[in-house]
Amino acid sequence: MGLAKRIIPCLDVDNGRVVKGVKFLDIRDAGDPVEIAKRYNDQGADEITFLDITATHENRDTTANTVEKIAEQVFIPLTVGGGIRTVHDIRRMLNAGADKVSINSAAIANPDFVREAAEHFGSQCIVVAIDLKRVSADNEAPRWEIFTHGGRRATGIDAVEFAIQMVANGAGELLLTSMDRDGTKSGFDLAATRAISDAVPVPVIASGGVGNLDHLVAGVKEGGADAVLAASIFHFGQFTVPQAKRYMAEHGIEVRL
């Protein structure tokens, strides 16, 4: 027995409300982020990720306030992402009670920002979020690229190479989201997860596409993920965190029960 694989419920927060359906037009309201975070904490979630999907300048105060309220009640690690572009943004979220910040667009625009962030705050609190899509044809060797703007814009950057570079720059953890899977409930991109997990020394979180508990199991067993992140299956009561953990345990995965 040793380190447990983590289950991380994710709160996508838009203007102070948890929503799901980021890439769909019918964004569903799932409720108040503080209440939801507390519920997952009570259910035994291993961490909570909070993604500010509005991430506008005016919205920063709301986000910091919400993070502060969550941190007063939830005593498990809390990661905050969305609009983290400067050292000041990071300090603000850590001061509000976040344990880690997730850097996305800013890492692509300026890879040295990740180095600066890790030097300032330590790698342990710097997560780089990588949004990727498979760009190779089915009969070719698999290749994935980094995408931005909710998966609409290709960057031409190879996802595995980018992951290696981000870790060299000081990222302590990677959050991989398959943009062609997100919201589809068809499961993680297991090949991409495995390729990146094998290529880097740091923990990897699989995300994007979870529709059932077998997907979580596959993320760990086939994808080699150290943690699995999901949103909708928990928000709308399809499964609870303990159900997910028991299912993973039944399939031979070490979890914190």
Partner: peptide, 21 residues
């Protein structure tokens, strides 16, 4: 270390991050 392994020889990630006994 860069070559950390568990008792079955599987690669262990560093940092040691998460819930351990």
């Amino acid at each position: 270390g860069d070559a950390l392994q568990d008792e079955h020889g599987a690669k262990l990630k560093v940092p040691h991050m998460g819930w351990n006994q």
